[in-house]
Design a protein around this nucleic acid. Sequence first.
DNA 1: TAATAGTAAAATACAGTGTATCGACATGAG
DNA 2: CTCATGTCGATACACTGTATTTTACTATTA
Lengths: 230, 230
Amino acid sequence: MTVWDRPEPPTRPVPLDRERIVAAAIALADEGGLEAVSLRKVAARLDAGPMRLYGYISTKEELFDLMVDEVYAEILPEERPGDWREVLRIRAHRTRQATLRHEWLADLLGGRPTLGPNALAVTEATLAALDGLADLDTVMRAVETVGAYFTGAIRHEIADLRAERATGLSERDWQRASGPHLRRMLATGRFPALAKAVHDGTEVDAEVSFATGLDWVLDAVAAKLARPPA
Amino acid sequence: MTVWDRPEPPTRPVPLDRERIVAAAIALADEGGLEAVSLRKVAARLDAGPMRLYGYISTKEELFDLMVDEVYAEILPEERPGDWREVLRIRAHRTRQATLRHEWLADLLGGRPTLGPNALAVTEATLAALDGLADLDTVMRAVETVGAYFTGAIRHEIADLRAERATGLSERDWQRASGPHLRRMLATGRFPALAKAVHDGTEVDAEVSFATGLDWVLDAVAAKLARPPA
DNA sequence: TAATAGTAAAATACAGTGTATCGACATGAG
DNA sequence: CTCATGTCGATACACTGTATTTTACTATTA
């Protein structure tokens, strides 16, 4: 028996903590999507048995919440620019960029109230930027409306992106050329307006269309903030 | 051996079809949420073995798609009113109402492109109502922006509703009184604007806030549709 | 009519999941 | 040294989606 076949001394269990667990889970999700995150695999990455995690997390849902809040740390901008409009715009874009980095976030966004420290910090920064510009109800409506928009837009964008990837074609080409089901549907003549849209539509950059819609919504908010109380 | 203990003749297998399968799945989801939908349970409702379903659907994801499209049939309005704004507003509200009837829809909304016949019909009706009001790009941007808004808003509303239900408290009371985590967070003084919002905010009806945000977005769209090309 | 081919359903099987429970073991207290 | 405590790992359970094999029956052909 040499050094080589002598078994390793039983490795003292590396002390675990939420941070390491969440980091491992995020790494897994980044690589293989949310469905690739299983407690067993997360634990394996940390050289631990699955049950060890339950000392730090009480359920898988909670792990997801922690993952989301961790990404909110990337969303929180380091310095706050002055203008409320810029604050909202930047928040939207940073959320979008974070979701492009962590596509699985699209599956979780808006799915449950976000109450982690980082999410709260983001909300705080947003509210602070709008504070005093109108009565509280209006401000809340503004924040929620913009939030609803970019949440939905990001989800749609990721959904389209995945569909493209699945077929290996750009969305426009896919609708036009392939997609036999849709082809057949459009060929029935039951959807003339849609057919025209698919046929005549020009492909627009996802970021541009996101930004444009966002600007529209921000315009609307600006109009409402203009006249302070009701 | 009497009539009574003579075994039932082996029940001829009820012929299955997608409709019955989808209906069973929707019933299960309505009762216990999306996670209550398993192929085994769906099959059991139809007195069939799990594998029988694979003659009609090729994967569980596909079943979800079919469920979503089935609900789009409820969303498609029976008659079309004239005004584009009314069309968009009604679509948003009908989507919201359908989601309140089928809460699981919130988990699927915007998650993947909707290409079923009913979804296409809804899109067709929407596009038809906006046709000619501006160049195609602008019209598409309008439809997508409004869609992003109400998708996100509905998801948020359902998320809040579930959180309330889980704690048995109204959201406002829950934030203020219970929710020890949030209490502690607010007590740290790190989130003054948020604390003020939670403290001073008046509870607003979900439908009202949905409708208000929607109107804002529609105002924005109206402004862009006003000047036709760029 | 008997045998056989083809098909639709059922049963079984597999690899995985989240999580409860329980036994072993290392550590600290008396 | 003995005993209590509490943590870790293994095991176990009830499920999941789906592939594969077995069975049962229907229809066809000889």
